[in-house]
Each structure stands twice: as C-alpha cells, then as structure tokens.
Deep mutational scan, measured.
Amino acid sequence: KLETFPLDVLVNTAAEDLPRGVDPSRKENHLSDEDFKAVFGMTRSAFANLPLWKQQNLKKEKGLF
C-alpha cells in the first residue's frame, strides 16, 4: 500500500514540491480512503470505472492533476 498524505500536501502542488515517492500523475493514489471519498464523492472503485477522460477532468477540477 502506498503512503498517504493529507489533502493540502497534494492539492495544487507542483511535481517538484510533492513528497518523495509521489507520482505527480497519480496524486489521488496517495489520499486516504476517507479523503478520496470526500474529494471525489465516490469510492476508488467507482472512480476507476469512469472513462479516463472523466477521471482526468475530475482530477483537474479538484487540483489533483
């Protein structure tokens, strides 16, 4: 399991300012399950079932792209 970080560490943070080991294209993977659901309004599995373009739009909207 990946290390999780608080939302404010990941949202609207440039790649070079992210904690070590965080993939800038997969910031959402480093949210706790609770934060993930609070941000996206759905579970990880529901998010994973969305088309890629919709996932990317949601990530942009939430500052996690």
Rank of each mutant, 00 (worst) to 15 (best):
K1L: 12
K1F: 13
K1I: 11
K1C: 15
L2C: 14
E3T: 11
E3W: 04
T4C: 10
L7I: 12
L7E: 05
L7Q: 05
D8A: 13
D8L: 09
D8G: 09
V9M: 15
L10E: 03
V11C: 09
V11G: 04
N12F: 06
N12K: 08
N12Q: 08
T13S: 14
T13K: 12
T13I: 11
T13F: 08
T13V: 14
A14Q: 10
A14P: 13
A14W: 06
A14T: 12
A14N: 13
A14I: 09
A15N: 15
A15C: 15
D17T: 08
D17M: 12
L18Q: 03
L18D: 03
L18A: 04
P19A: 04
P19K: 02
G21K: 05
G21H: 08
G21S: 09
G21L: 06
V22R: 02
V22P: 03
D23R: 04
D23Q: 05
S25K: 13
S25E: 13
S25G: 11
R26W: 08
K27F: 05
K27T: 09
E28W: 01
E28M: 04
N29Q: 15
N29T: 08
H30A: 07
H30L: 06
S32F: 02
S32Y: 02
S32H: 04
D33P: 07
D33F: 03
E34L: 09
F36R: 00
K37N: 14
K37V: 14
A38L: 14
V39W: 03
F40V: 01
G41Y: 04
G41E: 11
G41S: 07
G41L: 07
M42D: 00
M42V: 05
M42W: 01
M42Y: 05
T43S: 13
T43D: 14
T43E: 11
T43C: 08
T43K: 06
R44C: 04
R44P: 06
R44V: 04
S45T: 15
A46D: 14
A46R: 08
F47V: 00
F47K: 00
A48D: 12
A48I: 09
A48N: 13
N49K: 13
N49M: 12
L50H: 01
L50Y: 03
P51N: 02
P51S: 06
P51M: 01
P51V: 02
L52N: 09
W53M: 08
W53A: 09
W53H: 10
Q55V: 01
Q56R: 11
N57T: 13
N57M: 13
L58F: 05
K59I: 07
K60I: 14
K60W: 11
K60T: 08
K62R: 08
K62N: 11
G63K: 06
G63Q: 05
L64V: 03
L64R: 03
